[in-house]
């Protein structure tokens, strides 16, 4: 599904070139649950952003479902965002002015889904995450875990093939974190959704079936636990 070849991402300073990512080669198949790990500044988020079309590599090739991403324009990229990719953020990033219901509904609006169909889709989602009672509340009236549930629900409503999660549990305490990870696990196993998450926690990483370690912008270990 995802094929990265010799990806470089750097920032040019006056006298030197600072590499954030250097020579990344990576293949991720459909249905994988991958955890990207690494210390702060190792380039984990940048890698995730490049995979999610939010950032462009300076060098190298990126194929998504065998389509070359480096040749896509903004419009085509947002088409992919609407239909294939869902994002979950560490800081949830819900829109403060919209209710739970409206936050979840929003992606459907950009996909021009009809009103009645939208209603049933959002209702399903609320049901699935047990937040029907909260649907008219605003984000600041919810706990962090509840907000992240809404964030996941929003990411899932477009039935994406790929979910990108940047430290999804970074702001949550452990019970909430486990809940989110179990949801991911279930999605991955039952619905075949590909999941890539960035995390600093071994425990969270262990929910996935593959771990990629990044160090100073390069993949140091691919599947360190595979032998176990």
């Amino acid at each position: 599904m995802i094929k990265l070849r010799n990806i470089d991402r750097y920032i040019d300073k006056r006298l030197q070139r600072n590499f954030i990512l250097k020579g990344i080669d990576l293949d991720i198949a459909e249905g994988d649950f991958v955890s990207i790990m690494g210390p702060s500044g190792a380039g984990t988020s940048t890698l995730l952003n490049i995979i999610g079309f939010l950032d462009d590599a300076n060098e190298g090739e990126y194929f998504f479902l065998d389509e070359p991403v480096h040749g896509l324009n903004e419009k085509q990229k947002s088409e992919y965002h609407r239909s294939y990719i869902g994002f979950v953020f560490q800081a949830y990033h819900l829109i403060d002015e919209l209710t739970v219901y409206e936050n979840i509904e929003m992606p459907l609006l950009y996909r021009k889904v009809k009103g009645s169909q939208r209603k049933s889709m959002v209702a399903d989602m609320l049901d699935r995450f047990n937040i029907v009672a909260k649907k008219d509340l605003f984000p600041n009236q919810l706990s962090g875990g509840q907000q992240q549930l809404v964030g996941v629900a929003r990411a899932l409503i477009g039935s994406p093939k790929l979910i990108l999660a940047d430290e999804p549990t970074g702001n949550l305490h452990s019970d909430q974190s486990k809940e989110i990870m179990q949801i991911f696990k279930k999605l991955n196993q039952e619905d075949g959704v590909t999941i890539i998450q960035v995390t600093h926690s071994d425990e969270m990483a262990s929910y996935g079936d593959r771990i990629i370690n990044l160090q100073d912008g390069a993949v140091t270990e691919n599947n360190p636990y595979e032998e176990e």
Binding site: G52, E74, S78, H81, F87, H93, I95, R111, G158
Partner: peptide
């Protein structure tokens, strides 16, 4: 700004 970012990741283009 956050709203803009979220909307863009969900599939909004600049015109929207």
């Amino acid at each position: 700004a956050k709203e803009v970012g979220v909307r863009k990741t969900i599939g909004a283009v600049r015109e929207h």
